[in-house]
Design a binder for these strands. Structure first.
Ligand SMILES: [Mn+2]
Ligand SMILES: [Mn+2]
Ligand SMILES: [Zn+2]
Ligand SMILES: [Zn+2]
Lengths: 137, 137
DNA sequence: CAAATAATTATAATTATTATAAAATTAAAA
DNA sequence: TTTTAATTTTATAATAATTATAATTATTTG
């Protein structure tokens, strides 16, 4: 249920200095429309259904390109695989240890001590536990 | 310059249901005394100097044992390797992208929205950027 | 169109971590 | 103490995410 048309995504990529190849459009569209914070492999398996010839290397190449151009952010929720988020705003991620879904939380405020002199370029707040649904069991 | 004696560490492990083998003592002592948030490999290479017969598997086994018994916390700062911290309190970690050192920050306050109904069991706040030293270049 | 450039693929390489089974050590029983 | 059982450690292989490489395909440019 994306609100972006393919044409809009195309222009957006061009505006960010990325040539809008078919695969890049597809991958960015998936990140925009399915807001599930997918891993590289989830994207690969999803696109494979439509485009059986697609290669994992393309997914990794494209995600790294998007990261460098700051179109997506990397989420370090799990040790075994990276997740990606097309929402760039500063928000927290919660992973349910039962259903494995990833939820977004809005951060109202955060106060740190001792950061004077440090140049903070990246921030990530990662949480884990059990979501409301999974607790009813 | 640890303030814990080997005897104290021994008793601490026993109190936590861990048999205080030589290697376990050494590994926990390293985590306590060198507060550098080491990776498994850093611990391995350090102990190897003293005990050349030590195996990487022992390091991983022991760290996982410590994690299960909640003696250390895992820090997910980097995608390529896990770091470990014998300080269990809730605090943030900052990694300098230049010198690669990891710094602790005290968290004065944090307010999240929309967490009602969620059971939060784990929290991690990870930062990256340039430390004060490295900025003077 | 032809040449140059860029994107994609298939495949191999890398590397942190886990699994497995044998050997060594320690604890418990006799 | 000797024997036996349980635990720990080691060496090695397996796993799996990611990156590197080189060949192929597609696109752009003159
Ligand atoms: Mn998100
Ligand atoms: Mn710390
Ligand atoms: Zn859940
Ligand atoms: Zn630094």
């Amino acid at each position: 249920m994306g609100n972006w048309t393919i044409e809009e995504i195309k222009n957006f990529l061009i505006k960010n200095g990325i040539r809008p190849s078919f695969y890049r459009l597809k991958i960015y569209q998936y990140l925009l429309n399915e807001r599930t914070h997918p891993s590289a492999d989830e994207i690969f398996l999803y696109l494979k259904k439509e485009i059986p010839t697609i290669s994992r290397a393309t997914i990794y190449n494209t995600l790294n390109l998007f990261l460098n151009k700051r179109l997506v952010q990397l989420i370090n929720l799990e040790r075994d695989e990276a997740r990606y988020d097309a929402t760039l705003s500063w928000h927290a991620h919660f992973k349910c240890l039962n259903c494995n879904k990833v939820f977004d939380f809005h951060i109202e405020s955060l106060k740190l001590k001792g950061v004077e002199g440090f140049q903070i370029l990246e921030k990530q707040l990662n949480l884990a536990g059990y979501c409301a649904q999974c607790q009813k069991k």
